[in-house]
């Protein structure tokens, strides 16, 4: 577990598994909008890991922070669009 790339891979696998399990929880009666929000949060976290470790943005902290912010805002936009039908009804 010393290699940060290996740690990133483990984290990505865990986050992906959590996304799928979260989506399955909808069938078990968990609120779908809560799960949808969680799935988008996990997507943002996965994107952060790929940018930081796979694409090596950890070497450029300013760029890393910029990408994280923009992707975070983008995921919030997606969340707003996802929740819009529930809010308007």
């Amino acid at each position: 577990m010393r290699n940060p790339i290996f740690r990133a891979w483990v984290l990505l696998v865990l986050l992906s598994a959590a996304s799928v399990l979260g989506a399955l929880a909808v069938g078990a009666g968990v609120n779908e909008h809560l799960v949808g929000s969680l799935v988008l949060l996990l997507a943002w976290l996965k994107a952060r890991v790929i940018l930081s470790r796979y694409l090596q943005l950890w070497r450029a902290p300013v760029w890393k922070a910029g990408f994280n912010w923009v992707l975070g805002i983008f995921c919030l936009v997606l969340l707003g669009l996802y929740l819009a039908p529930a809010i308007s009804s």
Partner: peptide, 22 residues
Amino acid sequence: TAFWHMVDLVWVLLFPVIYLLA
């Protein structure tokens, strides 16, 4: 490999939106 990671990055955003958001 940066190109390959970009493909990876796009997929982790595509996958939940298309397949998981009920």
